[in-house]
Design a protein around this nucleic acid. Structure first.
Lengths: 194, 194
DNA sequence: AAATGATGTTAAACTAGTTTAACATCTCTT
DNA sequence: AAGAGATGTTAAACTAGTTTAACATCATTT
C-alpha cells in the first residue's frame, strides 16, 4: 500500500515516529475508483475523508431546478469529502465524483477518533489543513464579490493551469458560477484581445 | 477578568482541568474597543484571534475600486480575525472593525503555540471551530450560486434575526453582495407581497 | 465511413441587479 | 430647534450575464 505521498504531505506540518506511521498505515486504506464513480452522494452520510493519490474529482450539488453547481475540483495531494456531512454524520449536501480513474486514501469516520487518540499530532495536522481550506474558501467568496466573470476565469487559469487542461470547459463554467455559453464568449473575447 | 463565556464555549467540545483553565487565563487578555475602532487593518499582520464577549464587529475589505465588501459579522460567542494573515503572519486582506462598543478575549500569535503545548486539547477545540467555519463558508458559496438576491436576504433574515436588528441596511446589502438600492427595492417588494 | 453522444460556439432576446441622481428620514450635536 | 451627517427610498437608464435555439466539432462505437 503506497501512502508515501500522504506521509510526505503530513511531514510538512508535523513529524511522526515509525510506530505512529505504522499505526496510521493500519487504520487507513487505499481505494481505486473508475471515471464516473461516486465517492459521496448527496443525501448519504459521508463516511470518509479522502486524500487523492492520483486522478481527479469534482464536488458538486444539484439545486432545486436540477442544475449542477461545482464547488471544487481535487487532484493529487488534495483532500476531498463533504466535511459538513462527515463531521456531524448527517446527510451530505454534495456529491463527489471521479472525473478520471482515481486512487484515494480513505480515512473512515470509525477510525478517525482512534487516530487522534493514538497520534495526537494529527489533530494539529488536520487543524492546519482545515485552516487553509477555510482561508481558500473565504478568498473565493471575495473573488465572487469583486471580480467580473472574465477576471475570475483568468484567475482560475493562472492559479490552476494543470486542472484547466484536464477538465471540460462546461465544468469550469459551472465552477465559476457562469453558463458555458458565457464562458465561451469570454474565451473568444480573450482571443480577439491578444 | 471574565472569560467564563469562552470557557463555557470550550466546554461544549473538550473538558479542561482547573490547572489548564488557570493556564489559559494567564495567557489571554480581555480588551475593550469603542464603536468604530479597528481590531485588524488591511495590510497589517493580524496578531490575534479574538473571541467576542460583547458587542459586534464587521470583517470587510476595500476592493481596487474603493468599494467596501463585508465578509462577515461577529457577535457574542463568535470568533473573529483575519485567519489567512494570522496563520501565516502575512499582511491582512481584511479589516475588522467594531460596530458597537465591544469586549473581546484576545489570543496572541505569540502565546498560541504555548497554549497548544500546555493544553493539547485546545488543538482539538480549534480544529472543530475551524471545521465549522469552513462548512459555513462553503454553504455561503452555495447560496451565492443558487439563490437570487431576494432569497439570500430572506435566508439572512431568518438565520441571523439578532444581527439584522443591530446593523444598518446598507451593511447587510454589502454582506449579501448587492447594492443598498437593490436591497431597498427587495424590501419594498416583500412588503407589497404580504 | 456513418452514426451517436459529448463538448463547444454563436447570436438574438431577455432579466436580475447596477448606476446615477434626486429626495426623504432620522439622529446627534450645538 | 436648526443644521449636519448618516441612513434609506424611488425611479429611469443601463449592463453583465442568462436563456434559448441552432449549429459545429470531435471522439468513440458499430
Amino acid at each position: 500500500m503506497n501512502i508515501a505521498p500522504l506521509l510526505n504531505s503530513i511531514s510538512k506540518y508535523i513529524s511522526l515516529t515509525d510506530k505512529e506511521i505504522e499505526y496510521l498505515e493500519s487504520k487507513v486504506f487505499v481505494r481505486k475508483y473508475l471515471k464516473g464513480q461516486y465517492i459521496v452522494q448527496q443525501g448519504d452520510v459521508c463516511k470518509y475523508e479522502c486524500y487523492v493519490l492520483s486522478g481527479c474529482t469534482k464536488t458538486f450539488y444539484i439545486d432545486k431546478e436540477g442544475q449542477e453547481h461545482i464547488i471544487m475540483f481535487s487532484i493529487e495531494d488534495w483532500w476531498t469529502s463533504d466535511m459538513g456531512s462527515f463531521i456531524s454524520q448527517t446527510p451530505a449536501d454534495f456529491n463527489v465524483q471521479c472525473l478520471e480513474n482515481s486512487e484515494l486514501i480513505m480515512i473512515s469516520y470509525d477510525v478517525v477518533e482512534d487516530l487522534y487518540r493514538e497520534i495526537p499530532q494529527l489533530e494539529r495536522f488536520f487543524r492546519k489543513i482545515v485552516e487553509r481550506a477555510f482561508v481558500a474558501s473565504q478568498k473565493r467568496i471575495v473573488r465572487n464579490f469583486s471580480l467580473t466573470a472574465k477576471e475570475q476565469y483568468l484567475y482560475f487559469r493562472e492559479q490552476y493551469p494543470l486542472i484547466e487542461q484536464r477538465i471540460p470547459q462546461y465544468m469550469i463554467a459551472s465552477y465559476l458560477g457562469i453558463t458555458k455559453e458565457f464562458l465561451s464568449k469570454i474565451k473568444s473575447q480573450l482571443i480577439l484581445e491578444q
